[in-house]
C-alpha cells in the first residue's frame, strides 16, 4: 500500500464498534487517507484524527456522544493496532501509515 501513496497523506483504517458505528452511518470499517501533518506542520496524532473524524466522517449531529470536553468521551475505548491507546501515548500518539485505530463504545447496552 505504500507504493502509490503521496507523501503528504497517510492511509489508515478506522473501525467503530460497540454501538459507536451508529454515529458513523453504520460504517464499522472506514479506510481513510488523512494528511500526514496538521496545520502547524506537526505530525498527525490521534487528537487530530478524532477531530478529523468529527468534521469529515460523522454525519450524526450528536458529536458529544463521541467527543466530550475536547477529548474522546469517557467510556469509549481506543485501540491502536489492538493496543490500548493508554499504552501508546493516547492523543499524542503519532499516526503511522497502515495503522488500525478502533473506537469501541462500552456505553451501549445490549
Amino acid at each position: 500500500m505504500a507504493a502509490s501513496k503521496e507523501d503528504d497523506t497517510i492511509s489508515i483504517t478506522v473501525e467503530f464498534s460497540g454501538g459507536l458505528e451508529m454515529l458513523f452511518s453504520n460504517e464499522r470499517k472506514l479506510p481513510l487517507s488523512i494528511p500526514a501533518k496538521d496545520d502547524t506542520g506537526a505530525r498527525t496524532n490521534v487528537a487530530y484524527l478524532v477531530n478529523y473524524l468529527c468534521e469529515n466522517a460523522m454525519k450524526d449531529p450528536k458529536k458529544e456522544l463521541f467527543v466530550l470536553d475536547g477529548t474522546v468521551r469517557p467510556g469509549i475505548l481506543v485501540l491502536i493496532n489492538d493496543a490500548d491507546w493508554e499504552l501508546e501515548g493516547e492523543e499524542k500518539y503519532e499516526v503511522q501509515e497502515g495503522d488500525n485505530i478502533l473506537f469501541v463504545s462500552t456505553l451501549h447496552g445490549g
Binding site: 451508529m22 489492538d82 469501541v104 451501549h108 447496552g109 445490549g110
Partner: peptide, 12 residues
Amino acid sequence: HHKQLDYFSTEC
C-alpha cells in the same frame, strides 16, 4: 474484543 465474541450493541 480480544476473544472475538459475537455480541450485539445498540441502544434501546
